[in-house]
Design a protein around this nucleic acid. Structure first.
Lengths: 205, 205
DNA sequence: TAGATTGTTAATCGATTAACAATC
DNA sequence: TAGATTGTTAATCGATTAACAATC
């Protein structure tokens, strides 16, 4: 319940709680409990209560949690009670698919620019945006003080692009390139590699 | 070094080791060490040695690991020393992008069919495949004894589709739908939700 | 009130790491 | 041989859980 450093593993679960609360709200629920959440999320109720307790007291004994209230609290904690501008680097198949994905904007992540270094791709229209050359990237990031980037370039190019992004002030990278990036500790990287997921699962087959 | 149950957290790191070994091999390295791997992957060398030790002794004191040999061993352990056939359910923007992604086949995951329930989408050509209706799904999975599915349908449809896949014998689901699925314990689910990644990172901004 | 559920503690469980003998 | 690095142990560290007083 105090402001002590909270571990990564706890932080990574908060978005799952938030997502479930949105789901319950859509289903018309106004109240829930750590027990109900734990069943839906397949974890223990003690874990949910403990995770939340790092940030405050959000429930009522005997009753549980108000769905809308806890949602609001989680948004504040995660800093998603505001919109974030995001750039996308890489306009290949994956990059263009990500640019079309509605789920980002639906959660307050607004794609404001797309970059690629291939002359063929520069100038292409992707959704509401036009692909810009990498030379335009520094001004865009600096002028708009952007902090979040999505990286969807080939593995061989990823580290160099990451270096540039970090240099420009980017603090969070959603990395789709199948490579572990080397970045300073103050920069966060979240890795998405479907092949890693498949290879983990085949172990059990 | 024995065949005891190895924890999920260890299994999930093995694909990262494999990926790094492929990278080192491409870079012309024939030998590496737990130290070198640990620096590239940003973890401790002791952890890497311990993880590998659950499965055997793959290195040589004083020398390190043969890159090609360790790669082969990891492939065997993860059961990716063979090709796997995979189906994709959902032919929206995301599904079609995944169908075009070359990275699956490059690692031995062959997409053999795509399904969707929207009449508009059925019959569309996506890469080398034609979108089939969901009514065709049972026969495909059963006849080919498929075990792996990629789920790229809207959140509201995901649980119902997952139930059907499990019923048909699917044992591993790569889930792109932003929802926690309820499946029996013998079925593995790997979750990919970029919004969850972004929301975890904004906590630190 | 009786019943239910929180927030928190202490115990347990599991994962990581430091250190080093073995040995290439 | 001297130097290097593994595989493994034991210690440390951190995360999860069981349990319950507090209280709505």
């Amino acid at each position: 319940m105090a402001t002590q450093p909270v571990s990564d593993v706890v932080i990574n679960r908060l978005p799952l709680y938030l997502r479930m609360l949105e789901f319950l709200e859509k289903a018309g629920k106004t109240i829930t409990s750590s027990q109900e959440l734990s069943e839906c999320l397949d974890m223990s109720s003690a874990q949910i209560r403990k995770d939340l307790s790092y940030f405050g007291e959000f429930g009522k004994q005997g009753t549980g949690y108000n769905v809308a209230f806890l949602q609001g609290q989680l948004r504040q904690i995660l800093h998603v009670d505001r919109a974030w501008n995001v750039i996308l680097v890489g306009a290949g198949d994956l990059g263009r698919a990500l640019a079309h994905y509605q789920g980002f904007a639906a959660q307050g992540f607004r794609l404001v620019a797309i970059f690629d270094n291939a002359p063929k791709k520069i100038g292409l229209t992707v959704g509401a945006l036009t692909v810009q050359g990498m030379t335009e990237l520094p001004r865009c990031v600096r002028d708009r003080k952007l902090q979040i980037a999505i990286l969807a370039v080939p593995a061989v190019a990823a580290q160099a692009v990451a270096d540039e992004l970090v240099e420009l002030g980017i603090r969070a990278i959603l990395n789709y390139a199948p490579i572990t990036l080397s970045v300073p500790p103050e920069v966060k990287v979240y890795y998405i590699d479907p092949v890693v997921g498949l290879q983990s699962m085949t172990y059990y087959l």
